[in-house]
Design a protein around this nucleic acid. Structure first.
Length: 368
DNA sequence: AAGCCGGGGCT
DNA sequence: AGCCCAGGCTT
């Protein structure tokens, strides 16, 4: 008689408790110091947990470690964030990518003011009702800030759990997601009082020891190596299976950096939807198949073709786009600017605007 | 269920 | 240079 798969994956609570204990011992000596880890897990400032966890979505911790302090310095409280303009929030998010997160975080701060008297709710259901907060981020706030025994599963946790179990599956697939949350909930139930530290330990182990391909996991120093099925069967590297590759779209972008007296330049705002939505940039023309010609670029800005001088060229890659930038540079007098080019800023004011990394790099290189 | 949204680090 | 990682929302 075949085993019921649900029964076959059942774990004795005593084994789960031992696993939790092992991880907690390991975390005590191996947690990396990060700006959002200023208090023990379960007793952190909910606002700092909210901001850092939204930043950490799809973003490496080392990157967040650099940019979080600047953000918290400017917006030290949920009231300060709610009172800010969206433009300024985007400026402080510049360089982090996935800029919709910044808008939703801003909206979440305002929602907390309106609905919860400026407090961040403790209930996971209420948390998930806030913009930009899903199952993972809601669990992280409930657990790491409020100390509740809530499970949480991010990419690191899913990978660790899959390898422990020797369970194949494609990262991020619905089936893997379902199973990971169920397993994480079982483990949290095995030691509800230690849930926050346990959650953090699982994520930290995944980030530093049980690393994703192509980095080889450091199984020889893993606190869970004795009970890891993937290690026993030599499958650590092949679990989880890679996601099917996505198609890459190429875009040809022609950017014209206008230089005015006093080291000033002209910027424009991108459309509210799509790539780099609502962010600022030097005037840019985008095409599907080729760069526009020097004449086309000059005509679009009502300049003489002779006033354009070649600048740097480089390719900017994102997950599913390749943007080939061709840069032109033109010195112009303020009185000769076309009407559509009305936002003139000093080079040293560009930090006050939300710019993509690509535009930041272009403007920095041309304006010095 | 599938597609959209950046950026940086690894080998 | 090429390949990889990862939440939440929208459609």
């Amino acid at each position: 008689m075949p085993l019921n798969p649900e029964r076959a994956s059942c774990h004795p609570a005593s084994a789960d408790r031992a696993l939790v204990r092992g991880l907690l011992r390991w975390l005590a000596n191996n947690a990396r110091p990060f700006p959002w880890r200023t208090a023990p897990p379960g007793r952190r400032d909910p606002y700092v947990v909210l901001v850092s966890e939204v930043m950490l979505q799809q973003t490496q911790a080392s990157r967040v470690a650099v940019l979080l302090p600047r953000f918290l310095d400017r917006f030290p409280s949920i009231e300060a964030l709610a009172a800010a303009s969206e433009d300024e929030v985007l400026a402080l998010w510049s360089g982090l990518g996935y800029y919709r997160r910044a808008r939703m975080l801003h909206a979440a701060a305002r929602a907390c003011l309106v609905q919860y008297e400026g407090r961040i709710p403790t209930d996971p259901e209420a948390l998930q009702g806030l913009p930009g907060i899903g199952r993972y981020t809601g669990g992280a706030i409930a657990s790491l800030a409020f100390g509740l025994p809530e499970p949480l599963v991010d990419g690191n946790v899913a990978r660790v759990l899959l390898r422990l179990e020797g369970r194949p599956g494609v990262a991020g697939s619905p089936e893997v997601t379902r199973w990971s949350w169920k397993r994480a909930a079982e483990l949290v139930q095995a030691a509800p009082n230690s849930a926050p530290a346990f959650n953090e330990a699982l994520m930290e182990l995944g980030a530093t020891i049980c690393t994703p391909a192509p980095r080889a996991p450091q199984c020889d120093v893993c606190p869970l190596r004795a009970g890891c099925k993937a290690r026993q069967t030599g499958q650590s590297v092949s679990i989880p299976a890679p996601q099917p590759s996505k198609s890459l779209r190429r875009i040809y972008a022609t950017t014209i950096v206008l230089v005015l007296s006093g080291n000033r330049t002209v910027i424009e705002q991108r459309p509210a939807r799509g790539l780099w939505a609502s962010l600022w940039q030097a005037p840019t023309l985008e095409h599907e198949r080729r760069h526009c010609t020097k004449q086309e670029a000059a005509a679009a800005l009502h300049l003489e073709a002779g006033s354009l001088h070649p600048g740097p060229a480089y390719t900017h890659r994102t997950t599913h786009r390749e943007i080939c930038f061709q840069v032109w540079k033109a010195r112009v007098r303020p009185g000769h600017l076309a009407a559509c080019l009305r936002t003139v800023v000093r080079a040293d004011q560009l930090g006050d605007f939300g710019l993509s990394s690509a535009q930041r790099r272009i403007l920095d290189s041309v304006l010095g």
